Amino acid sequence: MIAFLQVFFIGIGVSFLGQLPLGNMNMIATQLSVQEGVRGAWKFGLGIAIVEIIYLRIALSGMNWVLQHMLLFNILTWATVLFFLVLGVVTIVAASKQQKEAKGVLVQNKINRFFLGASLSAINPIQVPFWFTWTITLFNNGLLAPNFSSYNWFTIGAGLGTLGGIGVYIHGGKWAVNKMGAKNRGLNYIMGSIFIIAALIQLYKNIQSPFGVPE
């Protein structure tokens, strides 16, 4: 039981720390929290966490399958770069033409926030190389056993860690935006810039690691 709890807390720690760096999903959660309230933002975060759990299970239970289909994930990461680059440009252009306090391009819709989070997370497959690298590291250091129970505890912990990291942006991000007195237009400019920066960072990673797995 102690071993399983260790794996559980390792999953929480790895996922929480992995979620903290500034990124597209986190900032969308902040934007939803500011412009719609924390309830919708938490639905969005839950959608992200569930899809990430699915990607993690793929990495844990099907490493051979992942290795055989890295080309597919590589194509998806390039598509993600293009998607967020275009989205960043569109968001900035829309903000420059904004005549009143309006929501950002990505959240200006009636899509259920849970499904919005799940769908955006699903087309952002960089979780696969992230978890693939971490599971190999944990295996090599004897911190994760290759068995069903360990996988379950690790996955549950990772899901909670993801929610915790997103929660920092939902509440902490909202507090920071309110503290700065930022308006929707300014927030939309920030969102567009982050989309572009994140796309360029992913582009650099793709060039450095052409098969999607960090060296």
Rank of each mutant, 00 (worst) to 15 (best):
F139R: 07
A118I: 09
I75T: 02
L20N: 04
V90K: 15
Q98H: 02
V93L: 10
R57T: 14
F148N: 08
A59P: 10
K174M: 07
N184R: 02
Q31I: 13
L72K: 04
I54F: 14
I166H: 07
A79V: 13
L138A: 04
L143H: 10
I92F: 02
L20H: 06
V34Q: 01
A3I: 12
V86S: 09
W78E: 09
L76V: 04
S149W: 09
F132Y: 12
I190W: 05
F16M: 07
M63I: 13
I170T: 06
S15R: 00
N112V: 11
I2T: 15
L56N: 03
K179W: 04
I92C: 03
E36P: 14
A158C: 12
V105T: 13
I194D: 10
L143M: 13
S61Y: 10
I92K: 03
L160C: 10
G186Q: 12
Q99G: 12
L85P: 06
T135C: 09
A41L: 03
G104D: 10
K205H: 15
G40A: 04
I48A: 12
M180A: 14
A59G: 05
Q202F: 15
I50H: 05
A102C: 10
A118R: 08
F139D: 06
A79S: 09
G37P: 13
K205F: 15
V213Q: 14
G18V: 10
K97M: 07
A59V: 13
L116Y: 01
Q35Y: 03
T133L: 07
Q208P: 01
N74R: 14
L203V: 13
F130P: 08
I136A: 07
W175T: 07
E215H: 11
A176N: 04
Q35G: 13
L82C: 04
A198K: 12
V213M: 15
L203N: 13
I194T: 03
G47I: 12
K97E: 07
W131H: 12
S15P: 03
M70H: 11
R113P: 06
L67G: 15
L60N: 05
M1I: 08
N64T: 14
H171E: 04
R185H: 03
K174Q: 11
N26Q: 08
Q31G: 11
A176R: 02
G104P: 07
Y204S: 10
N124S: 11
W131C: 00
L163F: 01
